[in-house]
Write a protein that binds this DNA or RNA. Structure first.
Lengths: 225, 225
DNA sequence: GCGACTTTGTGCATCGGTTCACAAAGGGAT
DNA sequence: ATCCCTTTGTGAACCGATGCACAAAGTCGC
């Protein structure tokens, strides 16, 4: 028993959410090149997906296209941005200013739309006090205070694996519910807290699996026992 | 019409492949702590997955467990490593030695098991010739030569977005078929080439989406128009 | 104003992945 | 040797995601 007239069903599939940023990037590129209108076919190619999938994804946000014409680029950018919550400014804290944390702090696309690196935190006294990407590195003892003071709602963990769980617990204790984890550990968190994991070595291992299979030949599948 | 006696069906589901590295890491930790045998339940907890899923995943490799006992840690480490192709040494080249490339070159977990950073390449004359993580940075003009000479089979792209496609084309032209792409672009590659994409800003945007939804309250779903 | 053409939005079939639940298999105690 | 207990391996139901194919809806030219 569903209401078919509901324009925006707030239950957007996870797979769709994961692709929206992809569409958004493609649309930004088009907007910069002065393209005013785009068809689902063209946008799909630019984003590297199937056009039927793209249309179904967009249909979850509402009917923002015009049949026979396509989608208005600017309008669609706005709608997707709003859906993703990028019309507001998110304060992000990066904990762990090693090689990776430094890279993240300086990463342009990171800061770009909707996000602002609001704090850098580290435990190493040799780094605390340094200025990186225009920000003062603060001591881990100040973690909770810094998060509250700067209104941080998303925390990026770029600490060593051993420190990640403790930092995670502490930021959760002051109300953070969104964590992007680069440390190679499985974090345990209470319900309601969102953890996304980026693991460089896992990606490499998946590549190695396919590479090995290619090297062995695509017909290795025959049972040669 | 399938052969039920086939011990290892070489068609391992993609979702399973993506989790094998997770199991492998958990098993390594256990091996280091001297644990000889582990049940699917315990291993599942350590890897952060459901135990039924874990068992089904492992069953795709073969029957390596003992009913009533569990899995032999060392043996399972070996079997998963072999399946993932980590028993051989993969030579990896990192192209683009900016902040991110530098972080990757120094990233411990990167080099750890099965992988070896064999070359660093960059276009900036100010960086070429420097030694980073014990490796000499070579000029992008040498890209093809370096890849052939060092036997590189996996390339990590940490270049600016604008340069990624060209570098991609060039490494493919000398036989590379596995690419890990950190640049925020959709690469177009011929069939048979594997590209995996890691995109920091996309992960952040997905977090923002869920964070926004939480902030608006879980009951925002009512159509308040 | 009308017909031809384009492109969206979606119903439906299909597919891959997840989860449950249990029979089969083995170990250990007595 | 037998019984009980534990744990694996997997059949089967379920669930979400994908992709096809087409009707509905709108534009543009004449």
């Amino acid at each position: 028993m569903k209401s078919p007239s509901q324009p925006r069903d707030r239950g957007i599939p996870e797979a769709t959410v994961a692709r929206l940023p992809l569409y958004l990037r493609a649309l930004h590129g088009m907007a910069e090149r002065g393209i005013a209108t785009v068809s689902s076919e063209d946008l799909a190619v630019a984003a590297g997906v199937n056009s039927a999938k793209l249309r179904k994804d967009l249909s979850h946000l509402g009917s923002y296209g015009t049949r026979g014409v396509g989608y208005d680029v600017e309008y669609l950018v706005y709608q997707i941005s709003r859906e993703l919550g990028l019309t507001q400014d998110w304060a992000v804290a990066i904990v762990g200013v090693g090689n990776l944390g430094r890279a993240l702090a300086n990463y342009g696309g990171f800061v770009s739309r909707g996000f602002r690196v609001a704090a850098l935190v580290d435990a190493d006294p040799g780094v605390v006090g340094d200025t990186i990407a225009g920000l003062n590195v603060e001591h881990i003892d100040e973690l909770e205070a810094v998060i509250k003071r700067r209104g941080v709602s998303i925390v990026v963990l770029a600490t060593p694996a051993a420190a990640a769980q403790e930092v995670c617990d502490r930021v959760i204790s002051v109300g953070v519910t969104s964590i992007l984890n680069f440390a190679p550990v499985v974090l345990s968190v209470p319900d309601g807290v969102d953890v996304r994991k980026v693991d460089l070595s896992i990606e490499l291992q998946i590549l190695a699996f396919h590479e090995q299979r290619k090297a062995g030949g695509p017909l290795m599948a025959v049972d040669s026992q």
